[in-house]
Design a protein around this nucleic acid. Sequence first.
DNA 1: CTAGGACATGTCCCTAGGGACATATCTGAG
DNA 2: CTCAGATATGTCCCTAGGGACATGTCCTAG
Lengths: 180, 180
Amino acid sequence: MSLRHGLLGLLAEGPASGYDLARRFTEVLGSVWPAQHPKIYAELNKLAGEGLVEVESEGPRRRKAYRITDAGVAEVKRWLTEVDVDHTMRLQPLLRSLFFWMMDRDELQQHLEAEARYYRDLAEQYTEYAARKDRGEFGYSEQTQSMRVTIEAGIRLYSALADWADWAQTVPPAKPSKGS
Amino acid sequence: MSLRHGLLGLLAEGPASGYDLARRFTEVLGSVWPAQHPKIYAELNKLAGEGLVEVESEGPRRRKAYRITDAGVAEVKRWLTEVDVDHTMRLQPLLRSLFFWMMDRDELQQHLEAEARYYRDLAEQYTEYAARKDRGEFGYSEQTQSMRVTIEAGIRLYSALADWADWAQTVPPAKPSKGS
DNA sequence: CTAGGACATGTCCCTAGGGACATATCTGAG
DNA sequence: CTCAGATATGTCCCTAGGGACATGTCCTAG
């Protein structure tokens, strides 16, 4: 049930429509918390029904902007402070790595190179984003400061994975016993 | 559909029962790919129906050990080499970090300390595990060598997160403009 | 001999998420 | 004026996963 709180949190920064939220989810949160628009619209309707958000205004093209209510703000805060963090990490690349021994030497090589490139690219994108933030392009609000912290996690995580993929290429498939 | 291939991959190392596999999933893969036993038994039955695994033997207490078939081995290899890696990373801690600005100074402090401790502990457990592997406690088969690579990813990932949580505590809530 | 606990396999239901498909509205280019 | 494309909101269905509950089997301590 984190999508729910993700939406509430984003709305706590200011009113937005489902469309806006969908964009923010794919742009900012795409790699750490993917969410499709159908889910977002559905959840917004539920949240409105529970009084955690309300329709702020109706714009062109049936656009509905939502505003978070006091109850909504209270709910995010409750979630942030009272609900245990879910540390579940479901990383297919790591699951796959358990089975590297089933791959040919050069298939594995190629795989690890592609992985390293993928992670390095993402790390660089996040680094670039962080640099823009640090240059002040997004201002110095509390919200962007939190975003900066999130971005830093992205940089560190993807760098770690890129380094790991590089390192893995140096590991021999099976360590021969002493003096081979 | 990774549970499917996770099971096939584990069975490629040798025959095992659903119970064995469930244990391995919680012990080795608990933090990178959680799986409950009901799903495992269900999937094994499906795999058996498709001829990717077969019942090797029936033991005491209704125990059924499964063995992977040639078709099963081919399927894991196909997955490893031909199917695109799913890089989805759904990390609630990072989603939460976007909303740190909504938390009180000391609540956040406590939160980050707890997070750092949590990650540091896991990183240490993995490091310990890696050390045992490197001492040769698990032998030097290709399989344990791959496991070593997976463990290394765990170490690096959790260390990165622990460092991040430490670093986040040093970030001021909102950067005041020049000369405050 | 009996009861508790570990071993072992399953059913059932509910929610979350992925993805295809549908539709309405507005803008701007030609 | 018309049509392509962006904006904007939804429905529907299917699968994956979480978790409660149920059941059978064997061993061993008392």
